[in-house]
Amino acid sequence: MFRFVNRWLGLDEDALTGGEVLGINMRNALIQKYNPRHAIERARDKVAAKRALEAAGISCTGTVAVLEDHQQVADFKPSRDMPDAWAIKPARGSQGDGILLAVRREGNTWYKGSGAPLPEDMVMHHIQKVVDGGFSGDSAAEDAALIEPLIIADPALSRIVPEGLPDLRVISLHHTPLMAMVRLPTIESDGKANLHQRAIGAGIDMETGKITRAVVKGTPITHHPDTGVNLIGFEIPGWKRVLELASKCGPAVGLGYCGADIVLDVNDGPLVIEVNAHPGIEIQNICQAGLKSRIAATGEDFR
């Protein structure tokens, strides 16, 4: 009787009959099973996650400064402390809210990628707003501002996109990377690597690091619509290193099932930008493969 009910509820499945696609219910169950509360909190806070990753010897994006309270903000002087190109991020922001990028500097004025000037007091105002928790949802009263040097993408990757920074998403269970995709910005997505805003998602073969399939909003494509470069068969440079980083990320933060966001820097190669405790399952549609069968292959029993 229990076996019967459990089978229909999807609780008692083996690798052969359990199907291959990971649904949101099963994903939530995996997160509940393997991602403890404190680890999720750590992953949500970019500064805490970065500290944990660096302690584990994982190469992350660099840090210029972390401003955690108003005292530190008052001591901070952009013209003295900031490099020529940087990114300001709220530690607990979500979906890229509150991220400010500067690409070059002239005197005490920086310029955004779009060419709009950013004078020093505007930068200070933005930092102030981040520390006030203006980008961190309504739950956090205060937040930390994380200032990083701007990442310049590997030329091999940046020549296939018109603008913006492509990033890799690798989903892994414990030490095993399961599935990977690269998100390529388009002009339509305004340089953002966000699949909802019509960026390209491209599935990567785990063994060779080559793109097997590219999708924009559910329609498969073969060439980048803006640059015309053929995407299928494109090999991600430094793929071995990407896999190595991805397999270390989850254990370093304390997460069992996680998605690592990795960028390819022009100088330093693959660097981790963020670790996600609730990675989405849309990657299955992009890679045209099921996550569940791959999880089952690692020996997971889904109980």
């Binding site: 500064v47 660099g62 210029v64 001591d75 003295r80 040097p149 330093d268």
Partner: peptide, 21 residues
């Protein structure tokens, strides 16, 4: 040659992030 490290490229001048690191 600069090793691909995770150190900040500009020295933080503040006792940021808890100070110790």
């Amino acid at each position: 040659a600069a090793a691909p490290d995770s150190e900040p490229r500009a020295r933080p001048r503040l006792a940021a992030s808890g100070g110790r690191a």
